[in-house]
Design a protein around this nucleic acid. Structure first.
Lengths: 152, 152
DNA sequence: GCTTGCCCTAGAGCCGACTCTAGAACCTAG
DNA sequence: CTAGGTTCTAGAGTCGGCTCTAGGGCAAGC
């Protein structure tokens, strides 16, 4: 499936991955391509659809905060071929946990920020109250009801 | 409430905010303190509990990806005092949207990673299948049932 | 035959956010 | 009196992840 023999230029790959051509070359130097890029006339890089798929995976890993060295480690495992599946799975699982942790952290931040937004909304549509400061923990989840909260 | 007259040293503030003393001085230079730090004997910084609260808020904003210039902007508004509440609210609301967007992105990444983990689990406990590649979109949400998927 | 556009390499530059260094002052305990 | 710990300043260094520059090649179209 999908294994057409269409060769793609670096510019085309940039278009379909959202990465810049600079970044594509940079990733290659960093060892972040599952299979070595072939070269065409004049030394130009030739990419396959598989390369694009691989890069899209890399984009997702990056977007979820995986550092380049970790992506390189994963790439190395893939390049080593069969027998490294267990390690790849472990690596992905660890990253998965990491992403979950990130989401948790962000969600907790979001709660506090939402609380703070609530405090300001109160403050603005019921006239100024006393002073209004730090990150004071959402005391009991009722921004629109109580007046001890910070609005700095 | 809580407004004791206890002065805190930079080291104590570092402890209770989780920031390093270096970072505290750095933030100060960057204009990220709602009220100017007082100085004690020998020019040493004296922080109040309010400063700690403020810094905790900054930590949350940073942890949720707000860049220092935006935090400085917010700090400036706070320093200008009453009358800037609308702007502060807007700034916080924008950040709130941003955090929600981050969580969305991460959640989408998580789905793909989870899918990929599923593919590897399949692959490992039902013996190797064909080749296994990019980020191929979770075709119909059934990792453990279908065998077209990528395991690179 | 010349411009335009895409591509090449090696290496430098940039940005954000810290992080650390050097050299010196002060305070407290032994 | 001295050693250890904390703090001070100004400024340099680090790190991750790009991003760009210089200088050049090649191919297609006017």
């Amino acid at each position: 499936m999908s294994g057409a023999a269409e060769d793609l230029s670096i510019g085309q790959v940039a278009e379909r991955t959202g990465l810049s051509v600079h970044t594509l070359r940079f990733y290659e130097r960093e060892g972040i391509l599952a299979n070595a890029v072939r070269r065409g006339a004049g030394g130009r890089r030739l990419y396959s659809e598989d390369d694009v798929e691989w890069l899209r995976l890399c984009v997702i890993l990056r977007a979820s905060g995986m550092p380049l060295p970790a992506i390189r480690a994963y790439t190395d495992l893939v390049r080593q071929g069969a027998g490294t599946e267990r390690e790849r799975l472990d690596l992905l699982r660890r990253h998965r946990e990491d992403v979950i942790a990130q989401i948790d952290r962000l969600t907790r931040c979001l709660d506090l920020i939402t609380f703070k937004v609530g405090v300001y909304e109160d403050h603005l549509d019921r006239g100024p109250a006393e002073h209004v400061c730090g990150a004071s923990s959402p005391p009991e989840r009722t921004p629109r009801n109580q007046r001890a909260a910070s609005a700095q």
